[in-house]
Design a protein around this nucleic acid. Structure first.
Lengths: 192, 192, 192, 192
DNA sequence: CATGAATGAGCCTTCATTCAT
DNA sequence: AATGAATGAAGGCTCATTCAT
């Protein structure tokens, strides 16, 4: 997952750093740039040049996952069934957060460090807005649910799963159950 | 909210420390025991004697709120309408978390520092279990919702509210809206 | 030269730190707080608590010398001969800077870190102002020399001595010679 | 001010680097070779090939000014009035230091990095020696003033001006005033 | 019991310099 | 020659915790 155009050696370091960061994130260890440099076998300053802050590194680690979500959002927009499209989209977002520890903090952050992260989050929000509008037009979601609620609610579900705990496998189940419950509530019109 | 039996001067220090911590928590400042000692006008060691770790202090700050929730749970158990009882109970939990910054981390923590915190959380869970059972028996909630899901889901809602952002006042509204949506989903039988 | 009211152990550390700093200053080594902590055999934070910045420490090292100058200024104000009083005063300032490496940067600094340093420098400037006024009233200095010129000129002489180089002993001679030359120039009225 | 014989592109880089360094010096920013490379749009190693150390670069920046002073010294040697010749010479040295921030540290340094700098400083000293000898022979300066004192004293005046502070324009005035005072003192025979 | 000085591990960050391309 | 990525020593600072008074 080498993103930028880099010299071969620089690219190798970039990869190592991101790989080490990915491992640490998966272990739940906070990202400390000095520590990462040591583990990646590169100088501290190398890490600092590539990633000015731990947040930038975390966002980079989360990027592939965010990109996949954006791609999924695009596909969902081609689905003829607006209800199913929205539900699939939201399922992906929740499951991604539960599967990839790097995603949740990036999704929940009010502001981003990397412009690319902001672009991806914006794309995701746009897709959500459109999918919600279609579902609402089809009378399939309650009218008091705004586009700006989608991401927070998915973050909330992911957090609930975290609090509930269990093995990674359990968590997927829990996530599906919680999302199903929420979706049920989103369907029934509040004004019915 | 002086909890333990203490000499009068010790009790005064205890109160000061907790009051200072409460202010810091409300400002979103992380609790640093040295800093708290300075602000409270007591020695560091005094803070340490009363609160072995920052977590213990945070739990102490959250205690009144947790106690109020437990009390509310007891009252809810006297409500004749099982659906209303459960909903009131859950509303309180969400609103408390949104209102009191100290509560969310304590509620979400898998383990506690103070035995008293554990007792309160256990009481709360018991009340939830009972209220959920009654509501389920009355056919008012879907069958795949377990007692162990209640607290996580409320933490999730609170987290969603945080991610959504807004002024403290907005947050209460958002919390009500999100909870209403979820409750709607909890009502529909999953097997319907 | 233990300045503040401190506990006995704290005072010992304070003394050690200042003594180490004095040695380093005399060697021309820049003051690095970590390094000083190591040499003084105390923890880093101890140095930081006593002296928030290297400048604060340098000013502390220079303080005894500044105090002596202030005292000398007071004595000079009791001298009946205004010309001799001013010359003695200026001689002391130059010789002190040449003798004590810590003094020159503190004297030349536009702003101070420690209030006490500012007080001392202010006292010194007041004495200079008064001595200059008396000498001028006695017709012994040219009229275009302002009180605000005294300290800069003494710093300049000290700097000239530094640039000239030589052993510590040579420097005293050079300083006297340079000052004598300047004083000669100060005497001759510019409007004569 | 392209000094060495270089290929055209190398010469362009040399010029850019010196120009950037000049700007930084004028702003009072310390010369950091990495930073300079970035600003000049060249690689770090290019800077290093041209200038082994920051001091070498600083001396290069100061060179034109030093050369002008040397040229002025040559002209002063043709002046028929030995007193005026010396005074003009010294005025130039002081005003150059006050005007050009790069000069003062180079003039005050005990040793140089570039041979060319040493040559220039030597030339300047020779001119000073000769001018002083002529003035002394004409009975226009006190006998205890050595050639080796001229540069230090001019550095001292420049330093005094810096300590006095004020706008760049003020500084020129202050410099003239301080130098005039010193010259007055230099004139009077010490044995008078 | 209370105090607050002392500790030092540990993290962050910069920058002069080297070296692969 | 030029480039700029990489290096890592070096220094700065904070904060949880201990311990002498």
């Amino acid at each position: 997952m080498t993103t930028p155009q880099l010299r071969k050696d620089a690219a190798r370091n970039w990869d190592r750093i991101v790989a080490v960061a990915r491992d640490l994130v998966d272990q739940g260890t906070p990202l400390q740039l000095n520590d990462i440099a040591r583990r990646a076998g590169v100088g501290v300053a190398t890490v600092y040049r590539h990633f000015a802050t731990p947040e930038a590194l975390l966002e980079t680690v989360a990027t592939p996952c965010l990109e996949a979500l954006v791609a999924h959002g695009q596909r969902a927009l081609t689905d003829a069934d607006p209800g199913r499209a929205l539900e699939d989209f939201l399922s992906q977002i929740v499951e991604a957060q539960v599967t990839d520890v790097a995603l949740a903090p990036v999704a929940a952050a009010a502001s981003d460090t990397l412009p690319h992260t902001t672009e991806l989050k914006t794309s995701l929000a746009s897709a959500g807005t459109e999918l919600l509008a279609r579902a609402r037009d089809a009378g399939m979601v309650r009218s008091d649910l705004a586009a700006a609620d989608l991401v927070p609610l998915m973050c909330g579900i992911a957090h609930a799963v975290h609090v509930h705990g269990g093995t990674p496998h359990d968590r997927i189940d829990t996530a599906r159950r919680y999302l199903a419950t929420l979706l049920e509530g989103m369907r029934k019109p509040s004004d019915a």
